[in-house]
Nucleic acid binder design. Structure first.
Lengths: 238, 238
DNA sequence: GAAGATAGTGTTAAATTAACACATTATGAA
DNA sequence: TTCATAATGTGTTAATTTAACACTATCTTC
């Protein structure tokens, strides 16, 4: 490869023999038992032996970063239709002990209840509460922090909370999810009114089963309304 | 480099001889004459010969993406203290005719009036109105569109409009900037009240010179107030 | 059928946003 | 020096949105 001409600088020519690697790392968020979790894998590479790390892989020759992230998600969860958002790149020269590895971080939202970790990956993977994570291999804690920040931001701007829940959910579940992830308390009546006004939920005319009290009504997310609204700039703002 | 172990997939081993290149591309926005402009350079590489492209370069061995972007900005404008925000990566396998070139896109905001394009770069660089740009070399039009979208989003969320203006500016200038970039009309009184309430401007007790009418008061941006507010989540919302 | 547990609902005050018109102050030409 | 011109600069009110707040309804289990 020769230096392209639309590239204006000639300060530090690229060494043709430089080994570069390009990866993606996925912060796979799950939500279970009123707790936000991240899918992790144990690192068995020094100097990070035994620490948890995010799920990542090289970007192959015939795919883009997005496809690589989807491939990882499919590999781990078997699911192809998962919410995914690119966050930012991480490229400190010394971020990886093996050389120059530049990574693009994504976060994704999966409903843990619907997710069977695939057999091949299962034994290595672990859902860990975000709260419990104080350190990770590589710069993965920094990546996690950035993705968590972005998740919180997006959760307030766009109707994506559903992505973490089962297809059918109660308003209470949804509210608790917001409270847990955002770390705030919400007023029940205001929360419900807000969601009503957004017209993004479909009342399933069904109720929760097997609870020892009045069962809650179940809703599902109305995909159609979302498409329509997100395109002309829905202001979600919970 | 061997495949790291925290990387779970082994579907498509990376060819050790694969030539990868890692670049940054900067959408350098300027504002002049009530018009949003982008700094471009003419491409002289087939098949994009003669088309305009963004400013970009390889990421060198000892810098991260951010540093590379800053290096480009300094090279072009001589200035080191320029607003810079990472937007997203572009990594389609065929996006670059020379091989596998993955790029991280940034946009930056510079006050054209204060910017002397450096001598070495000057003859190749051109400020072009965003409105006039219908196509660019590579996937740079797509990159521009994404960065423009992000600029508009950030302009509504964070007080960054100042970055495009001279140090001293009038409220009218600032309002017109918002109107031009966002493509909307704003109410003068509401706009002024809003800015007053944000407490991010310092009245310089000076007035515009050389205008053939009542001269406007000049303000500057109060850096200190911004630091303080952005850290605890300023809601700008113009 | 009573007790326990959670679901579900409406009103009012406060804050924010939107809409709107005229007086002020400088310049420059008569 | 005064008048025309061209822009700056300012306040009030209505509409909307957000925040605060407490009780009744419905189901289960004992």
């Amino acid at each position: 490869m020769t230096r392209s001409d639309n590239i204006v600088l000639a300060l530090s020519p690229i060494d043709e023999d430089l080994k570069l690697a390009f990866t993606v790392d996925c912060v796979i968020f799950g939500y279970d038992n009123d707790d936000l979790k991240v899918l992790t894998i144990e690192c068995n590479m020094d100097p990070f032996m035994g620490m948890i790390s995010l799920l990542g892989d090289f970007i192959t020759q015939d795919e883009d970063a997005d496809s690589a992230a989807k491939r990882i998600l499919k590999y781990c969860t078997g699911n192809e239709d998962i919410f995914l958002e690119e966050v930012k790149s991480f490229s400190k020269p010394d971020r990886h002990p093996f050389g120059r590895v530049i990574t693009i971080a994504f976060y994704s939202l999966v409903p843990i209840s619907l997710t069977k970790l695939t057999d091949s990956a299962d034994k290595h993977l672990k859902w860990v509460s975000v709260d419990e994570i104080t350190e990770m291999a590589f710069d993965h804690k920094e990546i996690l922090d950035n993705c968590l920040y972005q998740l919180r931001k997006s959760l307030r701007e766009k109707p994506i909370g559903f992505e973490l829940l089962p297809k059918k959910f109660s308003l209470k579940q949804l509210q608790t999810l917001y409270e847990v992830v955002l770390g705030i308390e919400l007023d029940k009546r205001n929360f419900r009114r807000k969601l009503r006004s957004l017209n993004i939920l479909i009342d399933l005319e069904e109720r929760q089963q097997e609870v020892s009290h009045r069962p809650a009504k179940l809703y599902k997310f109305d995909e159609h309304s979302f498409e329509k609204k997100s395109s002309d700039g829905l202001k979600f703002e919970i």
